[in-house]
Design a protein around this nucleic acid. Structure first.
Length: 264
DNA sequence: GCAAAATGTCAAG
DNA sequence: TTGACCTTTTGCA
C-alpha cells in the first residue's frame, strides 16, 4: 500500500516485466478507455517513480498513475484472470499481466506535462542520489509543524502517514515543532534515516521501523504488531516508556506520537 | 450484510 | 477546515 517505497517497487517490477515489450493496454471498467487507446499496442520504454507518482513511458506518451489512498496493482505471469470489479487499467503481454484498480490519477501525459508534475514535488528519499537540501530550505523558513511538512509532497516526496509518525518517533521529535525551530543537523539526521528506512521498505515490501532491540523477540520474521513504534497504536503503551500513545487529527490525517518520548 | 477504515490529494467555502 | 473521490477489506452484527 502506497507510500513512496510501494511506488518505487512497482516501477521496478513493471519495468522488469514489461519494458521493451509491446503492451496491450485496456480499461475494462471504461474510465480510462480514451487514455488506453493512446498507448495500446505501443512498446513500453520504462516505468519510474518519484515520490508517490508512477510514470510509464511509451515513447512520447506517459501514463501517469497516482494510487491515492485506495489504489492497488495486481500482476502475474501467464494469462490474465477474468476481469472482476472496477478494473481501471489492464496491461497484457505474451507472458505477463498487470491490473490497476481504484487510483486517484490514471491519465496519459505529454513530456511537458510530466515535467510540470515533477516540478511540484520535493526531493525523494528513494532517488538514486538522494539530497534533502531542497526540503531543508522549505522547512527552515516556516512555522508549519514538522509533522505537516513531512506529509507535504512539495517539501519532500514519498513520505506518508506511517513513515511520518515513525521517523518523528525515532528522532524524538515533538510533532508540532515548527519547521523553523527544527535545526539543520537534526534534519540531516532525519533525512538520512528516511533514506535508510525507505530503502529497507523497498527491499522488503513492508514498513518496519522498530529497531531489533526494541522488539520483544529479536530474530525471525518481524510480526505485524512489532513493526511500528506509534503508528496505529493509539492508547497502547509506548514501547520505550509505556506512556499511552496519543492520536490526533492534523490536517485531516491521523497523527500518532508518544507525549513523553517526543516531549518538547 | 453493511458500515467503517485504509499507507492520499484536491477544491470549495 | 471540510467534504468529495477512488475501491477493497475488515470488523461487527
Amino acid at each position: 500500500m502506497p507510500e513512496g517505497h510501494t511506488l518505487h517497487g512497482l516501477a521496478r517490477d513493471q519495468t522488469a516485466l514489461f519494458a521493451g515489450r509491446t503492451v496491450r493496454v485496456s480499461s475494462p471498467q471504461g474510465r480510462f478507455a480514451e487514455g488506453a487507446a493512446l498507448v495500446d499496442a505501443h512498446v513500453l520504454d520504462t516505468v519510474y517513480a518519484h515520490g508517490k507518482h508512477l510514470f510509464a513511458v511509451f515513447g512520447e506518451q506517459t501514463v501517469h498513475v497516482h494510487l491515492g489512498l485506495f489504489g492497488k496493482y495486481a500482476s502475474g505471469l501467464g494469462a490474465p484472470p477474468v476481469p472482476r470489479g472496477a478494473l481501471r487499467m489492464r496491461w497484457v503481454t505474451e507472458g505477463a499481466w498487470s491490473d490497476l484498480r481504484g487510483p486517484t490519477v490514471c491519465r496519459v501525459l505529454a513530456p511537458p506535462e510530466v515535467d510540470s508534475v515533477l516540478a511540484r514535488l520535493g526531493p525523494d528519499p528513494l532517488a538514486a542520489r538522494p539530497s534533502g537540501a531542497a526540503a531543508w530550505k522549505r522547512i527552515a523558513r516556516t512555522r508549519t509543524p514538522i509533522a505537516a511538512l513531512l506529509m507535504d509532497q512539495s517539501v519532500l516526496a514519498g513520505v506518508g502517514n506511517v513513515y511520518r509518525a515513525e521517523v518523528l518517533f525515532r528522532h524524538r521529535v515533538p510533532p508540532y515543532l515548527p519547521g523553523r525551530e527544527f535545526g539543520q543537523d537534526r534534519w540531516e539526521a532525519m533525512w538520512k534515516d528516511l533514506v535508510v528506512l525507505m530503502r529497507a521498505g523497498l527491499r522488503s515490501g513492508r514498513i518496519v521501523t522498530t529497531r531489533p532491540a526494541d522488539r520483544p523477540r529479536t530474530g525471525g520474521r518481524v510480526r505485524r504488531d512489532e513493526a511500528h513504534y506509534v503508528y496505529r497504536r493509539a492508547g497502547l503503551p509506548c514501547r520505550l516508556c509505556s506512556t499511552p500513545v496519543r492520536m490526533e487529527l492534523l490536517a485531516g490525517r491521523k497523527l500518532y506520537w508518544c507525549p513523553t518520548c517526543q516531549a518538547r
